[in-house]
Design a protein around this nucleic acid. Structure first.
Length: 355
DNA sequence: AAAGCGGGGCC
DNA sequence: GGCCCAGCTTT
């Protein structure tokens, strides 16, 4: 046991009890609700996840309700939250718990971490909050707080850093109340020891924080190399036929937006004119056997949809046809399909769909 | 060990 | 424009 542990955890927990937010998943130890909230909050701010937590708990009050839903329903409810593999894994795990475990949630770290979509962080969170098991969480907040207070400059995104921080976090864990301690350190990182411009001068750790007393708060935690952003050029073909149908295709390939729907897509190396687009193999395949009445660019300027690792330069081409042959979707039913935000934004502003 | 995976908020 | 967010999975 680290000799600093009681000092550190006592201060943290005192701060937490005075400063914690009332969040909808606080005040329950039901693992279904804690699990739901933890999956939603992976790489996601509380403010962004909150509305989804309300939607999911209302629509699926129990794990059986979630298990009984279709994947498309789950994805539709998840739409806009991003990292859609979380939703697919959530659904897979719900079915496993409901139908294989008869609704009894796993209650050990080992069994929790074996669930799809549940890694070390989430298993530790559920184990500590729901079952009072002594597993320390290490999320982005914990990295930041520990790195600064203890002056650790090992990069947080290399294996040595990941291992070292986990060991330290585990030493500092208040074992008589691991759930409260874990939430306390995360809340402290989220609300006080924030990434930019923390108010160190009135911090509870200002006397002992190594980074503050070093003047190195801005440089800590150390994180290696940022991702290089790739540019891609998307041309969506928005078919319109007289019977008020269009075409939507489900993305089943590897990559972004798996299992979500989109308009037929022609990806090109750069922004293209209509003449060039018409010569693309992908375009020819998509319109094969179809009577084209007109192809009109919706807007000249590309929409630049930014993902963390890709910038999608996107244009929508309105393709009037006499008949949609494949993957027909009545315009009135588009709203039932889970789609990326990029597509939803277009649907919401395109008059032929909104009228 | 490194890459891939969303969307949004803040500076 | 860059950084980060209650990370996990695949390669």
């Amino acid at each position: 046991m680290n000799e600093n542990a009681p000092f550190f955890s006592n201060k943290l927990i005192s701060w937490y009890l005075e400063n914690k937010r009332e969040l909808p998943w606080r005040g329950t130890k039901d693992p279904y609700f804690i699990w739901l909230s933890e999956i939603m909050l992976q790489q996601t701010r509380v403010a962004q996840g909150m509305p989804y937590y309300f939607k999911f708990t209302e629509t699926f009050p129990t794990v059986f309700d979630l298990a009984a839903a279709s994947e498309a329903e789950v994805l539709k409810l998840w739409q806009g939250l991003g990292y859609y593999s979380r939703a697919r894994n959530l659904h897979t795990t719900a079915k496993y718990i409901a139908y294989e475990l008869n609704g009894r949630f796993p209650s050990t770290y080992k069994d929790l971490v074996a669930l799809k979509g549940v890694g070390d962080y989430t298993a530790s969170a559920i184990a500590s909050i729901c079952f009072s098991l002594p597993h320390a969480v290490v999320d982005g907040n914990v990295y930041r707080v520990l790195a600064r207070v203890f002056g650790i400059t090992t990069p947080i995104n290399v294996s040595k850093g990941i291992k070292d921080f986990k060991v330290l976090a585990q030493k500092l864990l208040e074992e008589s109340n691991p759930g409260t301690y874990n939430q306390a350190i995360m809340e402290f990182g989220a609300r006080f020891c924030v990434p930019q411009n923390p108010e160190c001068s009135r911090c509870i750790f200002k006397d002992e924080c190594v980074a503050y007393n070093n003047g190195s708060v801005k440089e800590i935690p150390v994180k290696l190399k940022k991702v290089k952003v790739k540019k891609r050029f998307f041309n969506y073909l928005v078919f319109l036929s007289p019977d008020n149908t269009t075409q939507l295709i489900q993305r089943t390939q590897k990559g972004i937006w798996q299992q979500l729907y989109e308009f037929p897509l022609v990806e090109t190396e750069k922004e293209v004119s209509l003449d060039v687009l018409k010569k693309e193999t992908g375009f020819k395949t998509l319109v094969a056997g179809i009577q084209l009445q007109s192809v009109v660019l919706y807007k000249e300027d590309s929409v630049i949809h930014k993902l963390s690792h890709q910038h999608l330069y996107t244009r929508f081409w309105i393709v009037s046809v006499s008949e949609v042959k494949k993957n027909r979707v009545p315009i009135s039913e588009i709203r039932d399909y889970p789609v990326p935000v990029l597509i939803q934004n277009f649907i919401s502003e395109f008059s032929a769909f909104t009228n």
